[in-house]
Computed example of a mutant assay.
Amino acid sequence: MSTPLTVTRIGHACQLIEIGRLRVLTDPWFTQTATYYQGEPVAATVQTLGRIDAVVVSHEHYDHCDLDALTAAGFDLDVPLIGPGTVATIARDKGFRDVRAIEAWEGTAIGDLTVTATPGKHGVHEVTFVIQAAGRTVFFGGDSLRVPELDTIPDRFGHIDLAILPTNGLCIRPMNLRQVVMDAEQAAELTAALRPTLAVPHHYAFHSGRLGDQMITKADRDPRHYAEAVTRIAPDINVRLVLPGTPVTVP
């Protein structure tokens, strides 16, 4: 019998991944500013998360690296925090005491949990992650663009049980609509290459406010576009669209 694997989206790219008794928090974001809105309810507070065994952070943007919210709420700063060097510097400055800096194809172990950084590309330096324990494998895509090297993940790590991918194709208006996040079609193509048992989209409800959406960002906020693309490209792969706070168990 497989070890239980459950994922609960707290909001945006903040996910609680549970493999057996191991609990991993990804890309924490619990607050908002004048130009950063979750666009959906946040399903937990830092205080109600419960025990966390590791935090993984893909890059330093506030909506993925809200470390001030963790420290302000009394989060245990001895919990290992894993991310690229840019994130590691910030985490150490915030007082985290067990900071693991890893870059693409480097890994670190926390007991029975192994976290490997995989390539990513965004407006700033980013990595994605393969998270493994007890024979289960999760790919966490942060808010990366479609990176061809990610197609090699099944060859390197074996079968992917769960793939969590961004889908909003975020573009920056003042930069001539430069795209910085994979869109629904690109995420579906990556899903077809990864061939997970289950795929879950995230990073689509976010918006920049009424003026920000007109002047700063442009994005696709409908995850159904991703589900429809996967159905067309890889119809045998199961996709789940879930509300924040809804636990999803992976077969």
Rank of each mutant, 00 (worst) to 15 (best):
A88L: 08
E106Y: 09
P84D: 14
K121E: 13
R100S: 04
E103I: 02
E106Q: 15
A88T: 04
A88H: 03
H125T: 13
A117V: 00
A101D: 12
H125Q: 12
A117C: 05
P80I: 08
T116P: 05
G85I: 03
H122V: 13
K94Y: 14
D98F: 01
G111Q: 01
T116S: 14
K94W: 13
P80E: 04
K94A: 13
P119K: 10
L81Y: 06
E103F: 01
I82C: 00
D112L: 10
G95S: 07
H125E: 14
A91I: 03
T86C: 13
V99T: 01
E103Y: 01
A109Y: 07
G85Q: 09
T118H: 02
E106H: 15
R100G: 04
A101I: 04
P119A: 08
V127Y: 00
G120Y: 06
V99P: 07
A88D: 05
H125P: 03
V124W: 09
F96G: 07
V124K: 11
A104H: 08
I82V: 10
I110P: 01
R97P: 00
T114M: 12
V87E: 10
D112H: 12
T116K: 11
I102D: 05
G123R: 14
R92P: 00
K121F: 04
F96L: 11
T116L: 12
G83K: 05
G111D: 00
G123N: 15
A104I: 01
G85L: 07
G95H: 06
V124G: 09
T114Y: 06
D93G: 14
V124H: 08
V127L: 02
V87Q: 10
P84W: 07
V79I: 14
D112K: 12
G111V: 02
E126Q: 15
H125I: 11
T89D: 15
R92T: 13
A104M: 04
I82L: 02
A117E: 02
E126M: 14
V99H: 05
T108A: 12
I110C: 01
R100P: 05
L113E: 12
G83A: 12
A104N: 04
I82E: 00
R92C: 08
P119G: 10
D93Y: 08
I90V: 15
T116D: 12
H122P: 11
